[in-house]
Design a protein around this nucleic acid. Structure first.
Lengths: 223, 223
DNA sequence: ATTTAATTTTAGCCTAATCTAAAAAAAGTA
DNA sequence: TACTTTTTTTAGATTAGGCTAAAATTAAAT
């Protein structure tokens, strides 16, 4: 398999992330809006990716990843997340500064580099956002998770990931004291607007909107 | 100043390295042969670099770097050499494996990343080949050096750099026991072919050809 | 000083990745 | 069902970087 261009890698990654949302197929427009480009450009690229057998593609019918495409996307994501760990653990970046840098580093495709980096970081299983890091073979160590918005009042858990990693969202979380690894208890659910009253680390009480709570992933504590 | 493409950065770096050899101006063909491309491509690119005021260029007259071009080249070289230090010091690569990887990493242009990396590595002044690392402002801490081939018999010094970093050359040096930092004494110069008899670290005697000795830089010990 | 050789530039073409505008297909609606 | 709207694809350009072949310029050598 010939080495992919950064552009091709970005498309694959985008398709992978959209498929993660649960759907069977991804549309041209969804991809275009995720990577901020025109639908025409996406159409062109889909033809090339299909040519290389990275995606299943029939005109007008949306796309999904082939085995090869899936494996390839996971390798790209692996590189991205390992660099994110490096940036936070070693270079002391905060988790709202790393995304754009990691997006550049992820395209440096040198298998030995990735293996050595993984080893140097102590084979981390999750990145600073709490997302799992695929191993060399593209395997994810998945643990049961639930959106904070779906946690019943009275339950508590640990924050393990955020779905939305826009700088604005991450800054907001930082402000209200929510971070990966924090213990969180759902004190109350406000029926009126679906917002939640939370207790962070057993100390700080905050309110978060329904929208925010839907974008935070937790592992429930055995209750 | 708009961000440069990897291709533009490679041209600048090539021009910088060729100018290092002492000449006033660099020719199109020299650049073409260094970066393994056609003279026509070089001509095209020179026009673009001149447009951006990175080089002084008059048709058929060769090129040199402007102030801006020089500063820019030094930033690229800084990134390259910092990553080389990272690869050797932290990821335990050997110095004959790092060139191609560092050439990819050097194009990731994020000023904060470079500063943090520099700090993390302890503000190294030389890379694993012994070449100096420019600081944030493009300043080189230069020390007096001399080619091993120009060291008189009887003198000794420390190996601080190699000019030629082809894998073959580096492998050869490894084999004969020559490495950056090694103490080297010139025992004898063979008039017949200009080869040298060396004593490495006061223990190992080896012969090296004139060609090899011309490509090894040493700092003389005060004699 | 001319002619020959080497170097450098231009001209014209190619591929990758993007765009806008227009055409084609699918989906939604009266 | 037929019409309208949305989505997707195609057509035709553009830009960056590269190529080969031919023309222009400089350098070398009778």
């Amino acid at each position: 398999m010939k080495k992919l261009s950064p552009a091709e890698e970005n498309y694959l990654k985008a398709i992978y992330h959209l498929l993660e949302e649960g759907l069977e197929k991804v549309s041209t427009n969804e991809i275009a809006s995720l990577i901020q480009t025109s639908a025409a450009s996406v159409s062109d690229m889909l033809k090339k990716l299909a040519e290389k057998e990275l995606i299943h593609y029939k005109k007008y019918q949306g796309v999904s990843l082939t085995e090869l495409g899936d494996k390839t996307a996971l390798h790209i994501i692996r590189r991205n997340r390992l660099w994110e760990v490096f940036l936070v653990e070693k270079l002391k970046f905060s988790w709202d500064e790393i995304d754009t840098i990691a997006e550049e580093l992820e395209h440096v495709n040198a298998p030995l580099l990735v293996r050595r980096l993984d080893e140097y970081l102590g084979f981390p299983k999750f990145d600073p956002h709490g997302d799992p890091i695929p191993d060399e073979f593209g395997e994810l160590s998945s643990k049961p998770r639930i959106a904070l918005g779906d946690v019943p009042a009275g339950q508590s858990g640990k924050i393990v990931a955020v779905n939305n990693s826009s700088a604005a969202f991450l800054k907001y979380l930082d402000k209200v004291g929510v971070y990966i690894g924090a213990k969180v208890a759902v004190l109350d659910r406000i029926e009126f607007d679906g917002s939640l009253e939370l207790l962070i680390d057993g100390q700080k009480k905050v309110f978060v909107s329904k929208e925010v709570s839907a974008n935070i992933q937790v592992m429930l504590h055995p209750s």
